[in-house]
Design a protein around this nucleic acid. Structure first.
Ligand SMILES: [Mn+2]
Ligand SMILES: [Mn+2]
Ligand SMILES: [Zn+2]
Ligand SMILES: [Zn+2]
Lengths: 135, 135
DNA sequence: TATAAAAATTGTAATCGTTACAAAATTAAA
DNA sequence: TTTAATTTTGTAACGATTACAATTTTTATA
């Protein structure tokens, strides 16, 4: 347990329970865009009483405070991302892995009267690993 | 029922059943990014025996042939789009409506060894209609 | 046209991610 | 310590999607 994580949560007015700190720590060290299930599987051994509901609640709480990001892939599961800096994603259609990639430079869209608060960019294709397997 | 739709399906090697033509027609005249449920509700009156399974099967078939596009929003429902030309989307966080917007010009990302086949761009914010309500 | 085979549709049940909710446990306040 | 507030937990409910077998429709063959 990282004492720094507890401090960051406290700064946001979130009391740093064991579960919350564990989940936050997890996302700050695993930039694999995990699902709730993956977080649960990985944290369960060290927190045997951990409930999935707590993970859902905690992630929603973190999202509301802008501590993390999330996105939903076409397999209808939410993925969570401890990296809140602007970046895009690439998902391999073969192995499903989601890679971080730099956010491409774009000109702001002309949307008269619309207020834009965020943007998500997703690329699809075949990753290097899978392309090498194909040969 | 549009005879042209049937022809387009036939060209792709898809036998144009009543159901398939109706679903294709629907998507070619309703660019509202409907869900399966919305398609079902709208087509049920004219095709009373229509089954949701058929809609799911048909949409998957159309997707495989590149006749339509789809995307999943954060409420974990798939939306379907008869417009397969390159464009981006804007979802209003207030009313949930999804707008078509022009695809912003971007430089291709530098991904050594990766094969890029597609790109999805999603903007979030408040739409004009909702902003006017706020005042 | 009659018959058989193939394709498409349907309805129901199962699955899976997520949410609702109330009880139990923990923490903070008085 | 006693009480109140917060957090966690487990179970049940929910909703979108998928699996699957039966039925219907279409196509091919004789
Ligand atoms: Mn990321
Ligand atoms: Mn669109
Ligand atoms: Zn891959
Ligand atoms: Zn709106």
């Amino acid at each position: 347990m990282n004492t720094n994580s507890a401090e960051i949560l406290r700064e946001k007015g979130i009391s740093p329970s064991v579960q919350r700190v564990a989940i936050y720590d997890y996302l700050m060290t695993h930039f694999t865009h995990p699902t709730v299930d993956e977080i649960f599987k990985d944290l369960s051994p060290s927190i045997p009483t951990l409930s999935k509901t707590t993970i859902y609640n905690t992630l929603t709480l973190f999202l509301e405070h802008g501590l993390i990001d999330s996105f939903t892939t076409d397999d209808n599961t939410a993925h969570y991302d401890g990296n809140v800096q602007s970046h895009a994603h690439f998902q391999c259609s073969q192995c499903g892995e989601i890679y971080d990639i730099p956010m491409p430079k774009t000109e702001a869209p002309q949307l008269e009267g619309f207020e834009i608060n965020g943007m998500k960019v997703f690329y699809y294709g075949i990753c290097e690993k899978c392309r090498k397997k194909e040969i």
